[in-house]
Amino acid sequence: MCNFGDAGHGFSSRDHLPWSSHKTLRQAIAQHFQREKKLQPDNPRIRRLFTARHLVCIGGLKVRWTNNLMDHLRLSDDDRAVFIFHNADFLGYQSCLADQIFPADLINETLRTLTLLFPQNDRKTRRWLSKQISKHSLDPSILRCGNAWAQDRRFENFYFWHDRLVILKQNFDDASPRKLSQWWGDRRNSVQWYTFWVAILVFVATGVLQVYLSWRAMQQEGGEDG
């Protein structure tokens, strides 16, 4: 579940794991997956709106499903797409091994990122994800990753994927809805959401009233002429 080597003279959007002859596979993996926190999030808490469905429907991102763990949560295509590792069954199997080849806690932390993006108790997310599974032949175990509780929604509890989560969350926060359907689903700022839709309602009501008054005026003119 990790790409090795490079593309040579070609080009690949996928990340790869350098593995030289003087290192063991375990050493190469440990060197790549570091427990580092370089970026500081604007807010220490990750809100419930931060799901894969909302990344697409509100943030306008495309999801690129991947079997390469190296690419998980990485943005691509000029920050218009995000890679998501979908093999939850593989992660579950690895988490049960006493002697993992991956760094300690990496597998469990990866599973926790999936619970953020695909909360099991969110019906809309489950319907959306079920369609994605059928369309892209994804691992169906991703439907059963569980739910993220309050303590799971803090950046401080992530180490290996911390910086990519911060970047992805910032990209989501900075995205502006472009369609009415996106505006309707965007509840990131409740005050802004209500203000927008009240303005739309007032605009529509004003337009309907103007049409009605114009019609009444024409009716009255027609009655006087008769």
Rank of each mutant, 00 (worst) to 15 (best):
G59A: 08
G59F: 00
G59D: 03
G60W: 01
L61W: 02
L61S: 00
K62L: 02
W65A: 01
T66L: 02
N67S: 14
N68Q: 10
M70D: 02
H72I: 01
H72G: 03
R74N: 11
L75P: 02
R80G: 05
A81N: 03
V82K: 01
V82I: 12
V82P: 01
F83T: 01
I84H: 03
I84T: 02
F85T: 00
L91D: 08
L91K: 04
L91S: 10
C96S: 14
C96R: 15
L97T: 10
L97K: 15
L97H: 11
A98Q: 14
D99V: 13
F102A: 08
P103E: 09
P103C: 09
P103L: 06
A104G: 07
I107V: 15
N108F: 08
E109V: 10
L111R: 15
L111P: 02
T113A: 02
L114I: 06
T115G: 00
R123G: 08
R123C: 11
K124V: 09
K124D: 15
R126H: 12
R127F: 11
W128G: 01
W128K: 04
S130N: 12
Q132N: 12
I133T: 06
S134L: 13
S134E: 14
K135W: 01
K135A: 10
S137E: 12
L138W: 00
S141Q: 13
I142D: 07
L143G: 00
N147K: 10
N147M: 07
A148I: 05
Q151Y: 11
R153K: 14
R154G: 10
F155N: 06
N157K: 15
N157E: 14
N157T: 15
F158L: 08
F158N: 08
Y159A: 12
W161C: 08
H162V: 10
R164A: 09
R164L: 10
L165Y: 00
V166Q: 04
